[in-house]
């Protein structure tokens, strides 16, 4: 009898253990899968820098980017800067999950551009481990502005190019950061002494404060900045007496707001030329002088094919 009881006693925990076991077995199998990071950023841009994100396959994206007039430039007279806003429009499409191509127009210097964005690596854990996502971005800009300074603007002289290599990591659900080695090349520069090719190393981070809102910050230091004639000290100086100053690095702080198919990005930046080459290398305003611009990027996506 005792022995029979022993047998029963031995079985009872076994059957309990068996149920725990079912779950453990399922979880075991799950651990062998590769899990890719997603939504490292809400949008395809931070402010001026690209993010590692691409719209999904078959998605058409339309963006409207505004930079209003500076806070220190007769702000209220210019209706909070609205009267002298700079605008950029883009339309892009992702034929595959790893490639996005698009067209853009920027009011500043009447610039037209084509761009391509391509996924190189995706951050993942599980079976396949990758610490970062890497996305490339390449674009070519044609400035159609009319000039009468005697220099013949051939097609080539109107072109400039930007390449960004976005190395991003989603550290947690709320915190993501990226470093973006960037190459900017202009075929024609303002002065003979200027660098045609410039290197910048952009950095950016975001912190989500609610599921739909995130704070973003972005800084794009140029390692070999060009110079511009600086009239800020003496606006009436004769041309030969105007001192030259280094262009400033673009610093932007913003908030991302997501509502279904839209992402609204509201920010303050010292970079006014909305397109990449101008924002990165031709920003003359500085945060210290209050030469700041309110701006926004709005994106709308349409799923046009599966």
């Amino acid at each position: 009898m005792l022995k029979r009881f022993l047998v029963l006693a031995a079985f009872a925990p076994l059957s309990l253990w068996a149920q725990e076991d079912l779950m453990a077995e399922l979880e075991q199998a799950d651990a062998n899968k590769t899990e890719y990071a997603f939504a490292t950023w809400k949008g395809t841009k931070v402010v001026n820098l690209q993010t590692n994100e691409l719209p999904g396959k078959g998605v058409l994206q339309y963006t409207i980017l505004h930079r209003f007039g500076a806070f220190n430039d007769d702000f209220f007279y210019n209706f909070m800067g609205l009267d002298n806003a700079q605008v950029r429009l883009t339309l892009d499409y992702s034929p595959t999950s790893w490639l996005n191509v698009g067209l853009g127009h920027t009011g500043f210097r009447k610039t037209y551009d084509v761009f391509a964005k391509y996924r190189l690596l995706r951050q993942s854990k599980g079976a396949r481990k990758m610490p970062v996502s890497v996305t490339g971005f390449s674009s070519a800009y044609y400035s159609a502005i009319r000039v009468s300074d005697g220099v013949d603007r051939t097609f080539g002289r109107r072109m400039s190019y930007v390449h960004e290599l976005v190395i991003a990591r989603k550290f947690s659900q709320n915190f993501s950061a990226q470093i973006v080695p960037t190459l900017i090349h202009s075929n024609l520069t303002n002065r003979a002494a200027d660098n045609n090719t410039q290197i910048a190393v952009g950095i950016a981070a975001r912190y989500k404060i609610t599921p739909m809102h995130a704070i973003t910050v972005e800084y794009v230091p140029v390692l070999n900045p060009n110079q511009y004639p600086d009239l800020s000290a003496d606006p009436l100086a004769l041309p030969m007496n105007v001192p030259f100053s280094n262009f400033t690095n673009a610093l932007s702080v913003g908030i991302d707001i997501e509502t279904g198919g839209h992402v609204f990005q509201l920010f303050v930046t010292n970079a006014r030329g909305v397109a990449e080459p101008y924002a990165f290398t031709q920003t003359d305003g500085s945060w210290l002088d209050g030469d700041l611009h309110f701006g926004f990027n709005i994106s709308r996506v349409f799923t046009v094919s599966n």
């Binding site: 997603f38 939504a39 719209p55 279904g260 799923t303």
Partner: peptide
């Protein structure tokens, strides 16, 4: 929709 999937997971 890809974006729906992202919002489902993220938000």
């Amino acid at each position: 929709k890809a974006l729906m999937q992202e919002h489902f997971n993220e938000n």
